[in-house]
C-alpha cells in the first residue's frame, strides 16, 4: 500500500524548538523548510540544524526537506549538507523541467552510494509554481523513479498568472485540475498548496473538501491545528468503509472461485470499484478506524 500523505506540514528549518517538536502533531509528513522560511543570511545555519535534527531525533513520520532551488546559490550546498543525514524525501520548489529532477536524482544517487544508504531510499517530490512547470508537470513527475508526488505552490503560481487569491479558489481551478491529471498520468501523488490564514477554519474546511473532491491525495499545512481537520475530511464515512469491505470480500470470493465477473447486491463490481474500495480502507486505516 502506498504511503499516505494527507498532511505535509512545513516546519521552519532554523527554529530548534519547532524542529524538535515537529513529530508530535500527527502529520503524515513533516517538511523541514530551508527555502522560504529561512533568510538568506541564515541558510548555512538552517541546513546544518536540519541535518543534525534528522540524524539525532527519531521522528514517528516521514521527514522531508524543502531545499532551495539548484539555480540559487544555496541548492547544491543544501543537498551536500542534508543528504548525509538521510532524509526520507527531498522536495524541490519551483520545478520547471524534467532536467532539474534528473540532476538532483543524480546527486542523491551519488550520496546514497557514498554513505552506504539503500539505493532509491531517498524519495523526491516537486512543487509546481509556474505555468511553465504546470505544462511540464507530467514530465517532471516521470523524470525519476524517486518521484512520489507533485504539489502546487499557489502563491508564486498566482503571482505568475497576474491574478490574486480568492476564497473560492476559482483562479486555481485549471491549475489544480491539470496537476491532478498530470499526477495520475504519471502514477504519483498530488498534494495541494498551503492555506495561509490559520484563523479562517471555515475557509480551510471548504478548501480541503474541494481539493479532496478534485482528486488530491493531501494538503500542505503550515500549522498543527490544520492537521486534524484534513485527516477528518479525508476520513471515509462508516457507510463507505462498510461497502468497501464488502466489495473486497466479494472480490476475494470471486478470485477464489476463479469467476471473472463480480456481483454485489445485484450490481456489477469491476476493477475501478475494487481499487476505490482499497483506497477507502487505506484512508480508514491511516485514521485508525478500521
Amino acid at each position: 500500500m502506498e504511503k499516505m500523505r494527507r498532511t505535509m506540514m512545513f516546519v521552519p528549518g532554523n527554529n530548534p524548538g519547532m524542529l524538535q517538536n515537529a513529530g508530535i502533531y500527527g502529520a503524515d509528513t513533516i517538511i523541514f523548510d530551508v527555502e522560504d522560511a529561512v533568510s538568506i543570511g541564515e541558510k548555512d545555519s538552517a541546513r546544518h540544524l536540519v541535518a543534525e535534527a534528522i540524524r539525532t531525533i527519531n521522528y514517528p513520520c516521514e521527514v522531508a526537506v524543502r531545499i532551495n532551488h539548484i539555480s540559487t546559490p544555496y541548492g547544491y550546498k543544501d543537498l551536500e549538507v542534508i543528504l548525509p543525514s538521510h532524509p526520507d524525501l527531498i522536495r524541490l520548489p519551483m520545478a520547471q523541467s524534467a532536467d532539474e529532477i534528473k540532476e538532483i536524482d543524480g546527486i542523491i544517487t551519488a550520496a546514497e552510494e557514498k554513505y552506504g544508504f539503500e539505493p532509491g531510499s531517498i524519495k523526491m517530490m516537486a512543487a509546481i509554481e509556474t505555468p511553465k512547470g504546470l505544462f511540464n508537470a507530467q514530465a517532471i513527475a516521470e523524470a525519476s523513479p524517486r518521484m512520489v508526488a507533485i504539489a502546487i505552490g499557489a502563491e508564486d503560481f498566482i503571482a505568475n498568472l497576474k491574478t490574486t487569491r480568492s476564497k473560492d479558489g476559482s483562479e486555481l481551478v485549471v491549475a489544480r485540475g491539470h496537476l491532478v491529471l498530470a499526477a495520475r498520468a504519471a502514477g504519483v501523488q498530488v498534494i495541494d498548496t498551503v492555506f495561509s490564514d490559520v484563523n479562517d477554519e471555515e475557509g480551510f474546511i471548504a478548501e480541503v473538501k474541494r481539493i479532496k473532491q478534485l482528486g488530491f491525495d493531501g494538503k500542505s499545512v503550515i500549522n498543527p491545528r490544520q492537521i486534524g481537520i484534513v485527516h477528518d475530511i479525508f476520513m471515509p464515512t462508516e457507510k463507505e468503509i462498510e461497502f468497501s469491505k464488502r466489495v473486497l470480500a466479494a472480490f476475494k470470493e470471486a478470485l477464489a472461485k476463479n469467476s471473472g465477473v463480480i456481483s454485489l447486491d445485484g450490481k456489477m463490481i469491476d476493477k475501478p470499484i475494487v481499487d476505490r474500495a482499497e483506497r477507502v480502507l487505506a484512508y480508514a486505516e491511516a485514521a485508525g478506524a478500521r
Binding site: S45, H48, L49, E52, T56
Partner: peptide
C-alpha cells in the same frame, strides 16, 4: 538546546 542543536550552531559559527 539539545546536543544536536549545539553541534549545528558551533559548526556554523566556526565555519
Amino acid at each position: 538546546a539539545l546536543d544536536c542543536t549545539i553541534r549545528a550552531r558551533v559548526r556554523v559559527a566556526a565555519e
